[in-house]
């Protein structure tokens, strides 16, 4: 395993194509650092990506996502395929730092070049999914990993973001977490293509499974095309298993005994096949790309506002005196940034 030079973008790109671990790791760091000089090579990565089946896993903290990801990765390897994992944990809103602990449950996966695990912090991203996380998915995709698992932070409303980042969305629930069904009621039910009830070796698992199955058959209004595309919330009143539509599955798993893991992988493969057969994959790819464009634009604007903090400070007197309102201030600042195609004024060069 030779290591390409740290800033040699071409060598890194070559390394990524050959699935060199060091090169992949560095490329993801480039995406995370978001320096203007690495845009070209990341654009090349984007061109290379688009082959992998991207699966998002979400669920409340403690529902067993990391453990499930580990078990699933094992099963994917046994099936002869490779797997990249992006495990996301929250950044502290105060210090900006993060403790990334998902690897604690994924350690037996090391020593195998067919598995690549990267932990990432949310870095204060809206919706819990950083732009860089999606670029990391691209890097793993370009490196030729067959399946990519994104493990989300899974807190509060954040999980909704994953809908627009993955081809298949898995919602993980566990027995004994008490307000599980409440969480499902709050909206997480609609985003799942597959529900997993983890820890099903526990005696109270059946109640959780029954709860979710029950909710799914209650004639819940399903989103039409994966839904939730910035305000375009089209719902139709159809039972979940109507003709040609994906029937949302509930899979009970136990990483402890290995029960249900194979079934889950089969269901994931079936969902990918369903998407490919029905044109759903094309639609999801579109949705993902659209969302990424918007997220990237948000990133650029947020950076520019930070980098031009003095301009905002200059408006503060008027704002405090309430002679202008925040909307006018924002519009004034946006006008000064003069965004141009191809060379936006990036305020963060270092």
């Amino acid at each position: 395993m030779s290591a390409p030079k740290k800033d040699d973008a071409k060598a890194l790109l070559k390394g990524v194509k050959k699935r060199n671990v060091r090169a992949i790791a560095r490329m993801i760091s480039l995406a995370e650092a978001a320096k203007p000089e690495s845009r070209d090579v990341l654009a090349e990565i984007y061109r290379l990506a688009g082959r992998a089946h991207v699966i998002g896993l979400t669920g409340v903290p403690g529902s067993g996502k990391s453990t499930l990801v580990k078990a699933l990765a094992d099963a994917i390897r046994v099936s002869g395929r490779t797997v990249g994992i992006v495990a996301i944990d929250p950044s502290s809103p105060f210090s900006g730092g993060a403790i990334l602990g998902d690897r604690i449950r994924m350690t037996d996966l090391t020593g195998d070049d067919g598995v690549f695990i990267r932990s990432m912090a949310t870095r204060g991203a809206m919706g819990g999914l950083a732009r860089a996380s999606l670029e990391a998915v691209d890097v793993l995709d370009a490196a030729g990993f067959d399946i990519i698992l994104i493990e989300t932070v899974g807190v509060g409303q954040d999980e909704v973001d994953i809908v627009q980042a993955a081809h298949t969305v898995v919602v993980v629930s566990a027995p004994g977490l008490g307000d599980e069904v409440q969480a499902i009621k709050a909206g997480i039910l609609e985003i799942a293509d597959i529900h997993v009830v983890s820890k099903c070796d526990r005696s109270d698992a059946n109640a959780t499974i029954a709860d979710i199955r029950g909710m799914l058959t209650l004639g819940i209004r399903m989103p039409k095309d994966h839904g939730l595309v910035h305000g375009k919330e089209e719902f139709e009143d159809k039972p979940p298993a109507a003709d040609g539509e994906w029937r949302v599955e509930v899979v009970a798993t136990s990483a402890e005994t290995g029960d249900g893991i194979g079934e889950l992988l089969d269901t994931l493969d079936a969902h990918a096949k369903h998407l490919n057969d029905t044109g759903g994959m094309e639609q999801r790819r579109r949705d993902i790309i659209e969302m990424r464009v918007i997220k990237t634009a948000e990133d650029i604007i947020r950076r520019d506002f930070k980098a031009n903090h003095d301009k905002l400070a200059g408006l503060m007197n008027e704002l405090m005196a309430r002679t202008i309102d925040p909307h006018q201030a924002a519009a004034t600042l946006l006008a000064t940034f003069k965004y141009k195609e191809g060379k936006y004024k990036d305020g963060c060069e270092d």
Partner: peptide, 23 residues
């Protein structure tokens, strides 16, 4: 800082591979 924690009882090989993947 971003801190990746591996948990207990790791082997040197596991730790080195994790450090490289995490860059």
């Amino acid at each position: 800082m971003d801190v990746v924690y591996t948990g207990l009882h790791r082997t040197p090989a596991e730790v080195v591979q994790a450090a490289i993947q995490e860059d």
